[in-house]
Write a protein that binds this DNA or RNA. Structure first.
Lengths: 134, 134
DNA sequence: TTAAGTGCAAACGATTTGCAATGTG
DNA sequence: CACATTGCAAATCGTTTGCACTTAA
């Protein structure tokens, strides 16, 4: 359960943290902004502050429970860390986010960095796409 | 010369626009933030406002003269559009930005999007790297 | 009990905007 | 001359922080 996730992360089990974690786990939207999460909690009659949502998400990120992404458009989005690295495709028409994995691309990235004398520490790959017309 | 670049873009030839274009063309730093550009112009005794720098860069972007990137760290950076698409590698220790091109990665991206029923409109690939210890 | 966690409002940094003054075609 | 462009200051947006007040352990 979520309680132990928090304990393992060395975080006290508080209502806001539990609720945010639950929301991230149960929501069908896997990528949500702080504002979005805040609104949903308010709708659920949870009495949280936006600042707390930001603080909690930042702590979750530091604890490795959550990943933060900066897609197009002002605000960051957060997704639960489920252990499987993946990149993203964002549909420009619907805003839908699709996850994908490409071992080949990963390998090429490392080869390229290596060729320049570097090691890849992290990377960011987002495809902005449009539905293919038939 | 820069004057015709501006005319071709349908923009009036004004001092701020000329100066910003010149700076982007002559500077050894290919990726600069609005603030950075502003400071350099001030140092050059050009009497511009930061707001104008932002406005001009946005217009340049719309006109295809410039590309805007969001690397790690708050502010956007701008680079002259030289027609050759490329991706970036940012050194986490020095901040150095290295450009690279990989036909293979591009092809894989399109193949992946296609597999999901999409076409790649745009994409964003940044590798965050560290110098390889020998 | 007591440090950690919270809500609120104010502070923040990057960028945008309204407006009156200025410059370009 | 008409309209686009500018500089300035104020406004905006997403996010962070200070602080007095809870709360989990």
């Amino acid at each position: 359960m979520e309680t132990s996730d928090l304990r393992n992360a060395g975080l006290k089990v508080t209502l806001p943290r539990l609720k945010i974690l639950e929301l991230l786990e149960s929501s069908d939207r896997r990528h949500m902004s702080a504002e979005e999460i805040y609104r949903k909690l308010i709708d659920l009659k949870e009495d949280v502050g936006l600042a707390t949502v930001y603080r909690v998400l930042t702590q979750f990120e530091a604890a490795g429970l959550v990943r933060r992404h900066h897609f197009e458009g002002g605000s960051a989005v957060f997704e639960l860390e489920r252990g499987h690295h993946h990149d993203h495709m964002v549909c420009l028409e619907t805003g839908k986010v699709i996850e994908f994995v490409s071992e080949d691309i990963e390998k090429l990235q490392h080869a390229i960095a290596e060729k320049h004398g570097y090691l890849v520490e992290d990377h960011n790959l987002v495809l902005y796409v449009r539905p293919k017309k038939k």
